[in-house]
């Protein structure tokens, strides 16, 4: 439906602007807070314009952090988060594309059962199985390690189904042409399926990277060594100031820093992301 009435246009823009303001205001407040000194929050009014301490606050956080909260420097936590988010995103894509490949293109015994097992995990996110998962991870000695942070989150039914759907739209003739051209299953996977699912992989990567970056409960639970703290869990620890007021300007600086990598990923992969979600022609 194409409407061409200026009144509607203005209304639509008002709604959109309102939405942007609602989303952007807290981010702006966080940014302003991160440029102020600790005393600026004692007065009771929230400042709305940036102060002079931007460089100072950020440099301090990246370099040394807030020692009283027991968190390592933000740079360290960001590195941990990055490792975790990348392992989860890449691991999930790798595992789910392979399992989707198996489910769609091979007729093996108990294929239906395998499919349903994957399906059932949809109902078991980390939060539901967190105690047994912790038990297993602890038993394997993976507490305070990158493997412990990422491996339990890697299995993904959603991504498997997404790839299954992608593979189901590939014309059968393509598979047959490849067979006649002498491509075995793995060659077909590498030469044809992978390149054709490139955009879907990119779209999934964006979603999964943000999912991994934003993990809170799991890292909070299994990291007791400050060297393995992730940034999202770290913010929480910083805000829990013992015997004193939280250092809001520093917490906010951390929060702003924590927002940057997901933003960078979204902006950098925007084109592929949209293509992967929209493109249907094979």
């Amino acid at each position: 439906m194409i409407e061409n009435r200026p009144g509607l246009n203005i209304l639509a823009h008002l709604v959109l602007i309102l939405g942007v303001v609602i989303v952007a205001l807290p981010v702006w407040v966080a940014f302003v807070a991160s440029t102020r000194s600790a005393t600026d929050f004692m007065s009771g009014t929230v400042p709305m314009w940036p102060g002079p301490h931007l460089v100072e606050n950020y440099a301090r956080m990246l370099d040394s952090g807030v020692s009283t909260s027991g968190t390592p420097p933000v740079a360290r936590m960001m590195f941990n988060s990055l490792v975790m988010a990348l392992s989860i995103a890449i691991g999930k894509i790798a595992i789910s594309i392979l399992s989707a490949f198996a489910i769609v293109y091979f007729r093996f015994p108990l294929r239906g059962l395998a499919f349903w097992c994957i399906f059932v995990t949809l109902m078991l996110p980390v939060e539901v199985r967190i105690v047994p998962t912790f038990q297993v991870v602890a038993g394997l000695g993976l507490l305070n390690s990158y493997a412990g942070l990422s491996v339990p989150l890697i299995a993904s039914a959603t991504a498997t189904f997404l790839f299954r759907q992608v593979f189901l739209t590939m014309p059968d003739e393509l598979v047959e042409a490849a067979r006649i051209d002498g491509a075995g299953p793995m060659k077909f996977f590498r030469d044809i399926l992978l390149p054709l699912s490139r955009t879907n992989m990119a779209a999934l990567f964006v979603i999964l990277f943000i999912y991994g970056w934003n993990q809170y409960l799991w890292p909070l639970l299994i990291t007791t060594d400050a060297q393995y703290y992730t940034i999202v869990a770290g913010i929480k620890r910083m805000a829990d100031a013992v015997d004193g007021l939280p250092q809001w300007h520093l917490v906010m600086a951390t929060a702003v820093l924590a927002m940057l990598p997901p933003v960078a990923v979204v902006i950098g992969m925007q084109k592929l992301f949209v293509k992967g979600l929209v493109e249907t022609e094979k």
Partner: peptide
Amino acid sequence: FQNYALYPH
């Protein structure tokens, strides 16, 4: 093949 089945990429 009827629908050509060319490798699109």
